[in-house]
Amino acid sequence: MRFGRVDALVDVTVSISPGEQVLVTGQAASGKTTWLKCLAGLQPPTSGHVRWGPDDVARLDLEERRRRQRSFGMVFQSDALFDSMSVLDNVMLPLTKRQVPRDEAVERARAVLDRVGLSAAHGKRPEELSGGMKKRVGVARAIVAQPSILLADDPFAGLDPSTERSIAELLLEVSRGRTLVTALPDPVASLPLARVLRFEQGRLGSVP
């Protein structure tokens, strides 16, 4: 699969206020993933600006960007879990890398795993889990460090309808009091978010 040198996004100006719940829709390769990753400062936009509050992300130095990046949690499309670690260690990673003491990190990670309904899977490896359970681990890792903004990139990809509904409920539940930006190919009934954006061929389309 190759996109060549096509700009994924052109002329998109969106601002999101704290606490807003946003759904971004658009076909595959319409630029949703790139946009989410730009929001989190994981990719620099080739042109244009990403602002966090008043500040242009490109102008922040690396340390400052890293520091502010900590308000983001992301559920990746490919889960991006580490098969070499147990589920518990995967969820603990954001805490241990923030120098949280180990005992406290274990306790918080266990609490979050209970919250996403995976109390029994602590010691397993991600590769032993089903797609829906992996997604739950991904959600747990994204929220364990209490980020104020939660991003979810196509969280229902490859899931059957009933699992999809349960993951949607989970996302709604954990995003209470947070900003939530979710990318999906199409709006779904199980995830009724207040604001819906539509990307069409890299542009901001009309909202139906």
Partner: peptide
């Protein structure tokens, strides 16, 4: 390609 590098970044790791 499995987005694990970006996941590490958002876990506050370099």
């Amino acid at each position: 390609v499995n987005e694990q590098i970006e996941a590490l970044e958002l876990c506050a790791a370099d």
